[in-house]
Amino acid sequence: MNRKNTIPIIDSCSIDLNNNTTIHIDDLKEYIIKHQDMVFPHKHNFFHFVLFTKGSGEHIIDFNHYNIEPYQIYFMVPGQVHTWNFTGDEDGYVVNFSIDYFQSFLLRTDYLERFSFLQGKIEHLIFVLAEQYRPQATAILDQILSAKAERLPEDYIRTLLLQFILYISIATEKDHQEHSTPYNHKIFNSFQQLVEQQFKSTKLPSVYADQLFITPNHLNAICKSYIGQSAGEIIRNRIVLEAKRLLVNRNLNITEIADELQFKDNSYFTKFFKKSAGLTPEEFRKQL
């Protein structure tokens, strides 16, 4: 199979159409006008987040629909599929930055991995900022807008963006961290990273448990305590999500997708998909 066709990229958005830099920040209303021809399922090859200060309609991330509300913020990582259906009254901020934006700036190249909302996990992607955090969050984004307009040094802009990410982390993750142990948190994050790396080839929770040096029952208990799902469900959901992303690309037939996801045959893949998604791959593709 031609490898270039295995990733269903409908469109790869330019981070900055004018300056070809590694970060782009814009007023949301202006951004939507500039990119009104992108209202179809597509992927980015950079980090992307939006903070709505007002608006209505919905946006769709990895085939999940979310209604917009004031001070909702969503984060997307490279590879996620999304589109939107706005009603025209949106306002807020949109920020895109490249995968390696902080690479030469921070000693720890894996620093962003500490933030759950930058890991592409659906349970952490979208939230509404509590009222007490809103003024400071928008103030930092306004500073980034001004710094970009005034062409201030890039490291200054990086510092502001990192400040925003840290502030959002404080605003959204405090309660969760207070109710979890560092050990379990590390195990759960490590399991999610292993699933992301190996879900095509490794489909059994016991194999992941062995790699984490814990029992399958312990792994299940940790997963359920965090998101209410077993380890097997997390693995299956990741496989189905990738299948849906591949189904967006109509250049791939079902057999090629089954092969890409390392199923023994087309029939087994179809049964697996229908059991998890409630419809066959062909039916899902027709819905798109």
Rank of each mutant, 00 (worst) to 15 (best):
G79C: 07
G79S: 12
G79W: 02
G79D: 11
G79N: 10
Q80H: 06
Q80L: 09
Q80F: 13
Q80Y: 11
V81M: 13
V81W: 09
V81Y: 06
V81R: 10
V81I: 11
V81F: 05
V81G: 12
H82V: 11
H82Y: 15
T83W: 07
T83V: 06
T83M: 09
W84D: 13
W84P: 06
N85T: 15
N85Y: 14
F86G: 00
T87M: 14
T87E: 15
T87W: 13
T87S: 08
T87F: 15
G88C: 13
G88S: 08
G88H: 11
G88M: 11
G88Y: 10
G88F: 10
D89M: 13
D89R: 10
D89T: 15
D89S: 13
D89P: 13
D89Y: 14
E90Q: 14
E90L: 08
D91K: 14
D91Y: 10
D91V: 01
G92N: 03
G92I: 03
G92W: 04
G92D: 03
G92L: 05
Y93R: 09
Y93N: 02
V94I: 14
V94N: 02
V94G: 00
V94A: 05
V95N: 00
V95Y: 00
V95T: 01
V95P: 01
V95W: 00
N96Q: 15
N96R: 12
N96D: 13
N96F: 12
F97D: 00
F97E: 03
F97S: 00
S98Q: 09
S98V: 13
S98M: 05
S98G: 08
I99H: 00
D100F: 00
D100V: 00
Y101K: 05
Y101S: 03
F102L: 06
F102G: 04
F102A: 03
F102P: 02
F102N: 01
Q103Y: 03
Q103D: 08
Q103M: 04
Q103G: 05
Q103A: 09
Q103K: 12
S104D: 13
F105D: 10
F105Y: 11
F105R: 09
F105Q: 08
F105S: 07
F105L: 10
L106H: 02
L106V: 01
L106T: 07
L107G: 12
L107W: 14
L107P: 06
L107I: 15
R108Y: 15
R108D: 14
R108F: 09
T109M: 01
T109L: 02
T109A: 08
T109G: 03
D110S: 10
D110T: 05
D110V: 03
D110C: 04
D110H: 01
D110F: 05
Y111D: 02
Y111K: 09
Y111G: 00
Y111F: 14
Y111I: 08
Y111T: 07
L112E: 06
L112G: 05
L112W: 00
L112N: 02
E113D: 07
E113V: 01
E113A: 10
R114K: 09
R114T: 01
R114F: 08
R114Q: 06
F115S: 08
F115M: 11
F115I: 15
F115Q: 04
F115A: 04
